[in-house]
Design a protein around this nucleic acid. Structure first.
Length: 885
RNA sequence: GGGCACGUAGCUCAGUGGGAGAGCACUACGUUGACAUCGUAGGGGUCGGCAGUUCAAUCCUGCCCGUGCCCACCA
């Protein structure tokens, strides 16, 4: 017996453990079933579940469960990402609290510590995914630094290097002066801040009292200036080209060069060039063979390249000193207050990133991007919604060399070794590198491995095939690559999706997934991005605790409309918790009335119209879900099952069934019981991918299905349009309208809800008369009628009158209602109809409408007008009668 | 500066070239052996503004206003 009240938390863990233990999550590469592959975006091993995960994982879980029920061999590949910087920072902070630094432990010792941390605390998110009811194949869980995945990383690195697609280069990178590592362009957040523009004049060499003025937001960088650029077409400066300016403070002559980069419209038209500390200047410097003076050290303190007085100063202290000195020299012309953007490290949000000249490893992304662009153009991979393809293209078509080295310890160490003369040996193992080195330098050569590790995204880029065993040719790789769909947020299209496309196509000769579904961002109820600093983070686990997993999952799904962000409000979650409760209570009703699924029940062989009708409605709901899921319209799928369950099954069918079950037609009773049991079973099945827990529980309660009887392992129903009975649909549609109309009028006229009143029916056609007879008991109960009588003559004086189809419904209750109110009601109704008729008539009298509009539209308008006129006439008559009274 | 979304009921959001929808909130009434985490009924919207295309525009096009995001630049 089901408990009277529904308490989600009492069932969730038990079922989850049982499912997982049953092996149902596992992919079965040896089976002949068609594969369905989803690669889980591996969450950071340091992470804990946030709303974005909850949405992302719920959608993947729905598709996976749905595929499984359709008898596909589903592989949902789970795992976690080693998250280089994030993880290293966590452990460093831990050390810091013990008063230690990673240097104290040394590389080996530190890595040991990180692994320790990973073993102890790394599993948090994985267990939180279980709370969410996610059903990936846990037996195949991978970690990006697993043995196998690391092998794949080295193989890829070596191959790309051999192909010339990985190379070493000295360029400007975004440098984090606190972490002492290069970071990706994508990890730099441009933030608008208030600042100053300083206008500085540099004396022209060999000339008295002649200056050239430049402007900068970063005066300290002038210590590294190696030129001034002017536009070759700029008349003001033409004769200065080729001459030298004297760099103040350093007193170093720097050339005045002509370069298109300089825009005569901006500032003074002359630009100071600091090739080692500005991306544009770097390009100018290369064009003019300018020296690149690196005035910073790794911590962005002034290096030995600068005048002695500045050495060791932090960049902001150096700025102050430079300004002070310029002022003393009377070279500071103007200070402007401006707003400008400053590059911050996206992770810590506190460090200002410094363009810094270093040697790094790069991937030739431009070459790899070409086929990846083509794959989306040709539709081999499709984005849903389509508009994200623009984002993908615009980035891929302007892609920059991908800097893949990071000056960290935690990550895949770069498989490159340096010989005594600095020559490089790239190989998968040190032994292999050594073989090559010995061939060159002879025995006894000493190699030093590159200290750097790879960008975390390098290994995640391989995820779609490295997790399947590549570079070995495994059965899994053959069966599950390429994936069917990748589900992810737009924020990692560049970081991850693009890189998987490049690597997948290059190494597998095939795209890694056929569809990319980009889901919404989950915001708070005010539309703000959730962030720890804003303190508006809603923790999914709190909601699960309060309302249950099913409610949270259903909320996220129902709100996952394409192309729009989700503003999550707790009210919605509460509403869908109520939905689960509703379902629970419906099941209790079924239980009490012994409406249980019966083996061998055949929905095609039914006598009762109500039963034929509800079966038809089940089919429509099922088709609605299927169509929606095929198009990744998760919200439509959720709404389809929601409205069927609540609005059709509970609100109407169960109410219809009550008089039947209390009646004395034994055969119909039995059929109705069986049908009700069957429909509930269908609801549970169709709803299961969305709300796995409550449906599983009810499925178990409603019938004894033996050991194999888990809903999670059940089949998705096969039936279709053959179960739809249009005749029954028409009939019951009439019945519902009939009941609704009486209820509505009663309520309008303040007829006491409990009062049973008599209904007189006039102008009833044969079908209506038939319906009145067939559903006599239902009508009386649901519309609270004492009696239904068909009349021919005039209605009694002072009745309430209304119209359904062509039938007059008359409630002779002059004694309990206010007739003035009834007159008002009729006038209002008639007024509305008149307005309708007028609008339609205007159209129908418009010759252009008649000659241009399609036939069906004209016919439809005509019949609408006829119907409105008919009702208006009947109501007018009723009104006249009332007025006469 | 370039691009992409979005603007529909008090709130959160679906939707469609031909009669404006849901959930929540609100109002009234609650009866019937599943359910008050509920039921029945109801009020509420010139579908951001202005033009254009069309017989017909909330929907298509253009412009404008507002909001959010992404990218680039910033002497």
């Amino acid at each position: 017996m089901l408990d009277k009240t529904f308490q989600p938390e009492t069932i969730e863990l038990d079922y989850y453990n049982e499912w997982e233990g049953s092996g149902i999550f596992a992919a079965k590469p040896e089976s002949n079933n068609a594969p369905f592959t989803v690669m889980m975006p591996p969450p950071n091993v340091t992470g804990s579940l946030h709303m974005g995960h909850a949405l992302n994982m719920t959608l993947q879980d729905i598709l996976t469960r749905y595929a499984r029920m359709q008898n596909k061999d589903a592989l949902w590949q789970p795992g976690t990402d080693h998250a280089g910087i994030a993880t290293q920072m966590v452990v460093e902070r831990q050390l810091e609290s013990e008063g230690k630094h990673r240097r104290d432990l040394g590389r080996e010792g530190f890595l040991e510590k990180v692994w320790e941390w990973k073993e102890e605390s790394g599993g948090t998110i994985v267990n939180q995914l279980r709370r969410l009811g996610a059903t990936p194949d846990w037996d195949r869980e991978r970690f990006t630094m697993d043995e196998g995945l690391s092998t794949a990383v080295r193989r890829v690195f070596v191959r790309l290097h051999k192909e010339g697609l990985i190379y070493r280069d000295k360029r400007l990178v975004n440098w984090d002066p606190k972490l002492h590592t290069a970071v990706s362009d994508l990890e730099v957040e441009q933030r608008e801040v208030k600042g100053h523009m300083w206008h500085i004049r540099y004396p022209i060499e060999g000339e008295q009292e002649r200056f050239i003025t430049v402007a900068t937001t970063r005066p300290e960088t002038m210590l590294g200036d190696t030129a001034i650029a002017v536009n070759p077409e700029d008349e003001r400066y033409k004769e200065l080209i080729g001459k030298f300016a004297v760099l103040p403070i350093c007193n170093r002559p720097i050339p005045i060069v002509a370069d298109e980069y300089s825009d005569p419209e901006k500032g003074s038209g002359a630009v100071k060039i600091t090739p080692a500390h500005d991306f544009n200047d770097f390009e100018v410097g290369k064009r003019h063979n300018l020296p690149m003076i690196n005035i910073f050290d790794e911590s962005a303190c002034i290096s030995d390249e600068a005048p002695e007085a500045y050495r060791g100063l932090d960049r902001y202290e150096a700025r102050k000193k430079v300004l002070q000195e310029l002022e003393e020299l009377d070279l500071l012309v103007e200070v402007e207050d401006i707003k400008h953007s400053v590059p911050y490290d996206e992770k810590t949000k506190t460090t200002v990133i410094e363009p810094f000249l270093t040697d790094q490893w790069y991937v030739d992304a431009e070459t790899l991007a070409k086929p990846a662009i083509e794959a989306v153009r040709s539709g081999k991979t499709e984005f849903v919604p389509k508009q994200w393809e623009n984002t993908y293209f615009s980035w891929m078509e302007n892609i920059q060399p991908w800097c893949i080295s990071r000056q960290l310890w935690w990550g895949h160490r770069i498989p490159a070794w340096y010989g005594p003369d600095g020559s490089i040996f790239v190989a998968e193992t040190e032994d292999e590198a050594m073989v090559e080195a010995k061939a060159r330098f002879g025995d006894g050569v000493i190699l030093r491995q590159d200290d750097d590790v790879l960008d975390t995204w390098f290994s995640s880029a391989l995820w779609p095939f490295s997790t399947l065993g590549w570079p070995d040719e495994t059965p899994e790789l053959a069966k599950y690559y390429p994936g069917d769909v990748l589900i992810t947020g737009f924020d990692i299209i560049f970081f991850w999706v693009a890189r998987m496309m490049m690597m997948g196509i290059h190494f597998m000769d095939e795209v890694p997934f056929k569809k990319v579904y980009i889901h919404a961002l989950v915001r708070d109820s005010k539309g703000q991005k959730m962030s720890k600093t804003k303190g508006n983070v809603i923790n999914p686990l709190d909601l699960i605790e309060k309302y249950g997993t099913d409610a949270l999952r259903f909320t996220l799904t129902a709100m996952a409309a394409q192309g729009r962000d989700i503003r999550l409000s707790e009210d919605r979650v509460e509403g869908y918790r109520n939905f689960a409760t509703k379902l629970w209570n419906a099941a209790r009703y079924c239980e009490m009335n012994e409406c249980r699924p019966v083996v061998g029940f055949d929905p095609t062989k039914l006598d009762g119209t109500l039963n034929k009708w509800i079966v038809s409605e089940v089919v429509k709901a099922k088709q609605g879900i299927e169509t929606a899921l095929d198009l990744y319209k998760f919200n439509d799928a959720a709404n389809s099952i929601y409205h069927f369950t609540w609005g059709t099954f509970c609100d109407w069918y169960l109410e219809f069934s009550k008089p039947v079950l209390n009646g004395d037609d034994a055969a119909l009773k039995e059929e109705t019981r069986q049908t009700t049991g069957w429909v509930l079973d269908q609801i549970l099945t169709l709803l299961n991918p969305f709300m796995p827990f409550v449906t599983e529980k009810l499925f178990e309660e409603m019938a004894d299905r033996g050991d194999e009887g888990r809903l999670i392992a059940s089949q998705w129903p096969q039936y279709g349009a053959e179960l739809v009975n249009e005749d029954a649909v028409t009939k019951i549609d009439w019945l519902m309208r009939f009941i609704s109309e009486i209820r509505s009028v009663r309520s309008d006229m303040n007829v006491p809800a409990g009062a049973k009143i008599k209904l007189l029916v006039k102008d009833a056609c044969a079908k209506t008369q038939e319906g009145l007879q067939e559903y006599d008991v239902i009508l009386k109960q649901m519309a609270r009628l004492s009696d239904i009588e068909i009349i021919d003559g005039e209605p009694p004086k002072g009745s309430i009158q209304t119209v359904v189809d062509k039938t007059m419904l008359i409630l002779p209750i002059a004694d309990i209602i206010d007739l003035d109110q009834e007159r008002d009601r009729l006038r209002k109704q008639i007024g509305k109809l008149e307005l309708d008729i007028k609008k339609i008539s205007q159209k129908l009298e418009d010759k252009r409408f008649i000659s241009n509009a399609p036939e069906e539209i004209i016919a439809e308008q005509k019949s609408r007008r006829e119907e409105a006129e008919m009702i208006r006439n009947k109501l007018s008559q009723a009104l006249k009668q009332l007025e006469a009274a």
